[in-house]
Amino acid sequence: MEVRTIKVFTTVDNINLHTQVVDMSMTYGQQFGPTYLDGADVTKIKPHNSHEGKTFYVLPNDDTLRVEAFEYYHTTDPSFLGRYMSALNHTKKWKYPQVNGLTSIKWADNNCYLATALLTLQQIELKFNPPALQDAYYRARAGEAANFCALILAYCNKTVGELGDVRETMSYLFQHANLDSCKRVLNVVCKTCGQQQTTLKGVEAVMYMGTLSYEQFKKGVQIPCTCGKQATKYLVQQESPFVMMSAPPAQYELKHGTFTCASEYTGNYQCGHYKHITSKETLYCIDGALLTKSSEYKGPITDVFYKENSYTTTIK
Rank of each mutant, 00 (worst) to 15 (best):
Y84S: 01
K92V: 06
M170R: 00
K92G: 06
A250T: 11
P241R: 05
V67Q: 11
N157R: 13
Y155L: 01
F305Q: 07
K46E: 11
V166G: 00
W107P: 15
I45Y: 10
V189M: 12
K92L: 11
Q196L: 10
S310E: 14
N129I: 10
C149T: 07
S263W: 00
L291I: 13
G228N: 09
E308M: 11
Y113D: 04
V3T: 13
E125M: 06
F305H: 04
R66M: 09
N268M: 09
P241K: 08
S279G: 02
F259C: 00
F217V: 07
M207A: 06
F305R: 05
F242M: 07
K158N: 04
L37I: 09
S213W: 02
F259R: 06
H276G: 05
G194D: 02
F32Y: 08
N100K: 12
Q175S: 09
D180V: 07
E281F: 02
Y306C: 07
G288S: 04
C271A: 15
Y96D: 00
T11A: 02
I286K: 05
D109H: 04
F128G: 01
Y96L: 03
Q230T: 11
D287C: 01
N157K: 10
T266L: 07
G33E: 01
P47Q: 01
R184K: 07
N111D: 01
E204R: 10
N268F: 06
D303C: 13
G202D: 08
A289D: 13
P34E: 12
D180P: 04
A40K: 14
A136D: 00
S171G: 15
C182V: 06
T159G: 09
C227T: 01
Q195R: 09
F128E: 00
T282I: 03
Y252R: 03
D23K: 13
Y36R: 03
G161I: 00
A205W: 01
C112A: 15
G267S: 13
Y57Q: 08
G272L: 02
E296M: 13
N309F: 11
P241L: 05
A40M: 09
Y297C: 07
V206Q: 05
E144Q: 13
G202H: 04
K7F: 14
Q216A: 15
A289E: 15
E144P: 01
N110G: 00
W94N: 01
M244Q: 04
G33P: 01
P47T: 02
F56C: 05
T159S: 13
I286D: 11
Q196S: 09
G101Y: 01
A205N: 05
M170E: 00
D41E: 15
T120N: 05
L153K: 15
W107T: 15
Q31A: 15
D109P: 00
D38S: 12
Q98T: 12
F32G: 03
E162I: 04
G143I: 02
W94T: 01
A140M: 13
W94K: 01
R139V: 15
S294I: 14
E239S: 10
P60V: 08
T5R: 13
T266S: 11
Q123F: 02
K54Q: 12
K219Q: 10
T313F: 10
D13V: 01
E253L: 14
G164M: 02
M209C: 12
V189W: 09
L118D: 02
N49F: 14
P78M: 09
V42L: 10
Y28W: 14
Y96T: 03
M85E: 02
D23N: 11
R4N: 09
E239W: 06
K158D: 00
H273N: 02
V185N: 05
M170L: 01
I223N: 06
Q195L: 12
I152K: 00
V21T: 14
Q122M: 02
S50T: 11
L200E: 11
A117W: 00
G82D: 15
V206W: 02
N110E: 03
G101V: 00
N100S: 02
T27A: 11
V99I: 11
E2L: 10
C261D: 03
F174T: 00
R83N: 06
V188P: 02
Q122H: 08
Y234A: 12
V8W: 00
F242Q: 05
